[in-house]
């Protein structure tokens, strides 16, 4: 063996495959490859799969949140319309006349007006100037009511 090693020339060595495969390996390999190519055709890329899984996890809470937000804004807008829609088309004089001659007004209504004056909401709320509102309050002796 040592002599053989010393004189070793690759050309003198017969070519021999030292590796073996399991029995019938090459008979089965085409079927296994075909299975993989079929799977590859149906395969959804990993990033898309991940995205879909994440979306499914957040989809239900997201839809619920959107519904709540939608309902909330719809109601707020509707409420604003209700409060101001009736007052806005009226002229200042019409409101003043109403306050002068409407006998159904109760002291509690003016108490509420007084509160609004303090809050500086009067002009926005009644759609009249704050001076006019104060004049009306004096007319009905609001100070006495407060006392």
């Amino acid at each position: 063996m040592n002599k053989m090693k010393e004189d070793f020339k690759l050309d003198s060595l017969p070519k021999h495959n030292v590796y073996q495969v399991p029995e019938h390996y090459f008979d089965r390999l085409p079927t296994r490859v075909m299975e993989r190519t079929t799977a590859a055709e149906k395969h959804i890329p990993a990033w898309q799969q991940g995205l879909w899984v994440s979306l499914r996890a957040v989809a239900a809470p997201l839809v619920l949140l959107l519904v709540f937000v939608g309902v909330f804004f719809f109601n707020v807008q509707d409420q604003d319309k209700d409060e101001f829609a009736a007052v806005q088309p009226l002229a200042e004089q019409e409101i003043l006349d109403y306050l002068h001659y409407n006998e159904d007004l109760e002291t509690a209504d003016f108490a509420e007006l007084s509160y609004l004056t303090k809050q500086e909401f009067t002009s926005d709320f009644l759609n009249i100037s704050s001076t006019a509102a104060e004049a009306e309050l004096e007319y009905y002796h609001i100070r006495n009511i407060e006392e």
């Binding site: 690759l10 060595l13 030292v18 590796y19 073996q20 399991p22």
Partner: peptide
């Protein structure tokens, strides 16, 4: 792996070549 794998076999000089 060449020394230990059951699906690799050959005489000494062939394994040495690998």
């Amino acid at each position: 792996k060449i020394d230990t794998s059951p699906d690799i076999s050959g005489d000494e000089i062939q394994l040495k070549l690998q």
